[in-house]
């Protein structure tokens, strides 16, 4: 079984937000509810940025705090949410060091609240006319439009990667065999700053990059051990602080 992971090359990332837009379209997110986001920071006189999906940690604190095991680790290394079990206590949002989780029943991050124009249908908290096709919706892995009163987050496009041929080392949009199984943010990145593959396979491209270019993990001191690695170096850096004192 694969252990899926991602490498993001900060030397290549141009901060265009194409990944954010692709994720929002693929996964039908509300405006501002960016499972995948590119965060901008002012460091000195410079503007810098950091693409930030869910880290799908090896040792996820969100999973350990979830009282109902609604957040769990799949066999292929993805941190998923079972919406049928989530009670909306939001403890996972408290425990995630990376702020990647979103509660579906709250004020919208960006006004106006488009849910008013597309009211929910019981199963979904809102029902836009264009959304992830029904055959891909999967409440057990938190894929699709969230129901009301639950927490959602990036799934590594589980509806795509879980259908990949067994034993695949890399999910690459340039390979016709794996193109449709590649997460939307990876597939759309115009600078090809993202790589996706099996962290348990020594031959995978992600492992080569981590090894050869010194991949680092965000907030490694928390012990969550992300399965998303960043390549820094010239032109790229991982921000060290989360907030300026107001």
């Amino acid at each position: 079984m694969a252990k899926w992971g991602m490498v993001i090359d900060l030397n290549k990332c141009v901060g265009c937000q194409a990944c954010t837009a692709a994720c929002s379209q693929e996964n039908t997110r509300l405006p501002g509810e960016n499972w995948q986001d590119v965060l901008y920071y002012a460091e000195g006189q410079n503007l810098t940025w950091l693409p930030r999906p869910c880290m799908h940690c090896e040792n996820p604190s969100c999973m350990h705090v979830c009282p109902t095991k609604a957040t769990y680790k799949t066999e292929d290394g993805v941190v998923a949410i079972d919406w049928d079990k989530c009670i909306g206590c939001k403890y996972c949002m408290i425990a995630c060091p990376y702020g990647v989780r979103f509660y579906s029943d709250t004020k919208p991050l960006i006004a106006p609240d488009v849910r008013g124009a597309f009211p929910g249908d019981g199963k979904r908290s809102w029902a836009p006319p264009y959304r992830l096709p029904e055959q891909f919706e999967d409440a057990k892995h938190g894929v699709g439009v969230s129901p009301s009163g639950v927490v959602s987050k990036c799934t590594f496009c589980y509806h795509k990667i879980s259908k990949a041929p067994k034993g695949t080392a890399d999910l690459d949009e340039d390979n016709p065999a794996t193109k449709e199984h590649t997460p939307a943010c990876v597939r759309t990145c115009p600078a090809k700053a993202r790589y996706f593959g099996d962290l348990d396979n020594p031959q995978s491209r992600v492992n080569q990059l981590i090894r050869d270019r010194g991949g680092v993990r965000l907030l490694d001191q928390t012990g969550n051990k992300p399965q998303v690695y960043y390549l820094t170096g010239v032109g790229g850096s991982v921000p060290s602080s989360r907030a300026k004192q107001a």
Binding site: P67, I87, G88, G149, V150
Partner: peptide
């Protein structure tokens, strides 16, 4: 405050996460 207070009544006993202090 909970999103699904009634779901809690069955979801916690049936899927008790021992590592969660909240439980």
């Amino acid at each position: 405050e909970l999103g699904h207070p009634f779901r809690m009544l069955w979801a916690i006993p049936l899927s008790f996460q021992i590592s969660s202090a909240m439980n």
